[in-house]
Design a protein around this nucleic acid. Structure first.
Length: 264
DNA sequence: CGATTATGATTAA
DNA sequence: TAATCCTAATCGC
């Protein structure tokens, strides 16, 4: 379930649970046993999110833990002491009150601070970070002949947006995903960035992607079922005007849009 | 019980 | 563009 909002929320929650505490680290899977052994018994300093990347700093360790969840990776938070691990667990971090289990990540490795800097340097501005520079986003989009639907998924252009948010953001701002980046007006790009910041912040707060306005929801956010609370992603008709959505394949993934709200 | 699917990204062709 | 990796839930038979 990971787009940028998920990773930022995890960083925040791990900081609350683990920062300043000595951690028992272990691994069920042999593939990260050595890494877990290296972390075991050290004090967790802090976690940092950059787009969809999570970095953890540890006291008295020169390396940084780098985790990228990919499509299916998950961090599961449990009360300490935790039950025996269920399923595939790449890494378990046991803190005083809460334990975090990592499964199915695309990347989980100890890297050097230089490698960390290199990863961060290759990312576009992250709308969830206060130091994000919107002008970089404007420049990246405005200079490209690629479709805006592809640009939003490209982490070099803007870091943290995934397949759900790109569809929802373009619907909300009223932009057809097939339009060239350089064909967008300055005002459209500005509104796209502003809406991205607003939606991802809401996502962190709710720990869930709910793009639909509260007054349009059929039930409270807390009781939404999966897939509800969105305008076009996995919807048959546009949640704003009722027009049947149309599907495109952009950037190798499916994206739905509303022909009425998002004219070509 | 096997096939399918998923909010990701890289590599090869 | 297709194949590939990683895991678990869901769906059809």
């Amino acid at each position: 379930m990971p787009e940028g909002h998920t990773i930022h929320r995890i960083a925040r929650d791990q900081n609350a649970d683990l920062a300043g505490h000595r951690i028992a680290a272990s691994a069920v899977q042999a593939r990260f046993a050595a890494g877990a052994a290296r972390l075991d018994g050290h004090v967790f300093e802090h976690a940092e999110a950059w787009g969809k990347h999570l970095f953890q700093w540890w006291e008295d360790l020169p390396e940084v833990l780098h985790v990228h969840l990919g499509l299916i990776g998950k961090w599961t938070r449990r009360a300490s002491p935790p039950p025996l691990p269920v399923g595939e667990v790449r890494l378990r971090l046991e803190g005083p009150a809460h334990t975090w289990d990592l499964s199915g990540p695309m990347a989980c490795a100890l890297i050097t601070p230089d490698e960390h800097d290199h990863i961060v340097a290759g990312l576009g501005p992250d709308p969830l970070r206060r130091d994000a520079d919107p002008e970089r986003f404007v420049a990246n989009v405005g200079s490209s002949r690629r479709a805006i639907g592809a640009l939003l998924m490209d982490q070099d252009v803007v870091a943290g947006i995934g397949n759900v948010y790109r569809a929802e953001l373009l619907n909300i701002v009223g932009i057809d995903p097939r339009r060239e980046g350089r064909a967008l007006t300055r005002d459209e790009v500005d509104r796209l960035w502003a809406e991205t910041v607003r939606q991802l912040r809401l996502g962190v707060k709710r720990n869930k992607i709910v793009t639909m306005r509260t007054d349009e929801l059929v039930r409270p956010v807390s009781r939404l079922r999966p897939g509800e609370g969105r305008y076009v992603y996995h919807q048959e008709a546009c949640g704003r005007c009722g027009t049947p959505v149309v599907d495109h394949r952009i950037g190798g993934r499916r994206i739905s849009s509303c022909p009425t709200c998002q004219p070509a």
